[in-house]
Design a protein around this nucleic acid. Structure first.
Lengths: 246, 246, 246, 246
DNA sequence: GTGGTCTAGACCACA
DNA sequence: GTGGTCTAGACCACT
């Protein structure tokens, strides 16, 4: 039996740390303008030396994700990594194949997650999911400032928390990890499409939550399926619609 | 917004290499008795120095996975990692929760994989899947030597190739990766349950293959679902049946 | 090829700042009794925080160069760093070797500076040089108060401005820098020798200025050479003359 | 008296270290292909930690001056920092004003150095200067390989050692420092002009050495003056001559 | 009390 | 025995 091994790559610790932080930003755990914990605390949490953490920060600064400011009021500030509107469609189009696969992957795992969550969610799970849902609804309800870039970031963050909350409520570590991975790999700026261009596209959340709350597994799975399909359709429509964009 | 980061761990290169090889063994790419490529070639393929590779091998030897033999006929030989029959049930029972989650995860991803594979499989995909299927059927058909430990390993290897082949035929990298991950995390010795105790349990493969070959997506998904459910049921039955074991 | 590197030393910022200020004092840009700019302004000019500036000031106070006085009329006051007459000769003698080298260095660079200045000086250059010359002549002319310590400082300051003006008029940054370096390294109190003991020694300045003004490069170079040689001779005479001192 | 202070800059230690090494390379103490001392030794010599040294090395690698290679035969290798022939003239032209000033500065200090060296050189000084001279003559004599880039580097290195040897023989630290500074600031690739385009331009060295050896100060000064003027003339000719270059 | 830098020592990967 | 990386602790500069 002939087999061939691919090359392994040694990832320096600072790379791992950078990826870790990048992941947190990607999941919306920090919003633009937020400060990451102070270097010393962060290094402690991550279990690495400050030297290594700082090397990771230097990398993130190079990517324009964070900025480190000195002084008493300083700290690690998360930057707004927004894509200019006129480049957004091109950037999404260039990775649409990838995104389509990702949505298939999400469909498989998040539907399962919704089904299990409807059966197994704890009160605490419900509380978290509900809180994220309310954050989303508050943002969409406050129609005033949809163009504020931070609004998009805040909505994306709540959206992410909602879906990850359901994944966690599935009480299945493998599925939860898969859902998180999918969100991390998501191209962040597509949040703009939903918030700026189709703010109504995100209305399946309430139906999904109700199904999970009432423990209706089949409905939860269906709601999740519809929601994700709808999202993908919105994205596809955005790309194909030459009249409404720009 | 308060958030906390978990610790990152630095994996030495030799750990990564060991994991890489362990994975190949877990997926049945090498059978007990097979030889891994010579050290020099392997180091080259992996892109690491022989020093590091040797350290990885030392670790694998420590786990009893491989053995390095000197001399002209020597090399890195894959060992038979069999669990004694009298410990098998206990070992499976102790990690049954984990296995159940794993099966839920497989269900989500492999059903999706089957559905997409039915639509997208190429001739080459079909050839690979078919070849694995035939290997399984040949082993089950040759009733003579079900107790031979290598038979179990050979069956497990073919089983793995069958499922991974379908995953690959789904033409979705995320799903394929998830399926592979699930197989890697599978507790290897459970192969014995199916081969030794319930050799008939693995009869869903042909139905699955036919559905994929004929491009019947719904049937493929259903067949995969039934197959995995059945497998889990077999396992559950094995654990609960106090009469037939030992 | 075998080579060895010497040690590098890390200079703290406050050291750099202190040296910067010390240099300004050494060049006579501030006279005893003058006030340096207020701390806040100075810190701004220097591009450092007040904390660092204050540390530098503390060092300068330790050397007796400045004194910081509180209150409405306070500020950073430049002190008179005079050497008592009875120690002057000993101090000069102890570093005479160094001074001799310095005069050789000045000879090389200031003669070149004079030559180029005669050819390249602008009207503005001439104005500055002339102004410094007049200040010197006014001080030497006003015979009354040669013993006043500030007179010496004022003369030294004008002398410095005269020579640095010529260096600048040479329109050669390297030479100008070398001349300034030489003046900074000069042992400040030797000004006393010329003012107190040989007030006539400084009469080459007018000849030098005329040559530069009329654009006579050869004469300028010769005048500068004679002037510096003469100065050194005065110093040497002062040290050798056992009768006239003390 | 109104005065304004310029900003001071805090130079991190690794910057100082980088400058230190850059200086050694600029002075030709190391030739392309040479290895710098091992990191540990170098850090010790420089009196800094390896961390800091490595940061400096990273900077130098970024500038393309050195390359660090791993393994038993590895080390810090000096790269050949050559300018392509077709860019050389433009690069020299763009900084010709600066170079002209530099030559004036060299004229002032190196003539003085030659004069003092003729009077004060020790036997050891003569030995060093002579050795450098012989290296130059050997390279110019071996006409075969003037186009080899390392030949230029080797000549430049010997040239530098020759002039710095004279500066040191002047027994005047200020002048020696000024000469070294001038060489460090020299635009390195101009060595190509003398070696490739006008290999005969460097024949004043022997006359200069003889004068210093015989202790003829006036002749030494004159020889140095002629030599530097000639070098500048060669450079000027190279820039103006449109026919012979490219 | 923040980020910025340096140190001394250790272990790892490489050839 | 080379360069590559990480650690723990310290001090400095900034606001």
């Amino acid at each position: 039996m002939v087999q061939s091994f691919g090359p392994v790559r040694h990832t320096a610790t600072y790379e791992v740390v950078a990826e870790h932080i990048r992941r947190a930003l990607q999941l919306g755990r920090y919003l633009p303008g937020d400060k990451l914990p102070p270097e010393r605390a962060l290094a402690l949490q991550l279990g690495v030396s400050r030297t290594v953490l700082r090397e990771a920060i230097r990398a993130l600064e190079g990517e324009g994700l964070v900025e480190s400011r000195r002084g008493a009021m300083g700290g690690l500030v998360v930057l707004n990594n927004e894509v200019p509107a006129d480049q957004l469609k091109a950037m999404i189009a260039s990775r649409f194949d990838q995104l389509e696969q990702l949505y298939e992957f999400r469909l498989a795992n998040e539907c399962a997650a919704a089904r299990f969550a409807a059966r197994r969610r704890t009160a605490e799970d419900l509380r978290k999911i509900s809180e994220a849902l309310q954050r989303m609804e508050a943002i969409v309800g406050g129609v005033a400032e949809h163009n504020d870039s931070n609004t998009v970031a805040r909505f994306t963050s709540a959206d992410s928390a909602f879906h990850l909350g359901i994944a966690e409520a599935s009480r299945n570590g493998f599925i939860a990890q898969a859902v998180e991975d999918a969100w991390v790999r998501r191209f962040l700026p597509i949040g703009n499409v939903f918030m700026r261009i189709e703010p109504d596209a995100n209305n399946g959340h309430r139906r999904l939550f109700d199904a999970i709350e009432t423990g209706n597994a089949a409905e939860a799975e269906a709601a999740m399926g519809d929601h994700i399909q709808e999202t993908l359709a919105t994205l596809r429509g955005y790309l194909n619609d030459r009249l409404r964009t720009r």
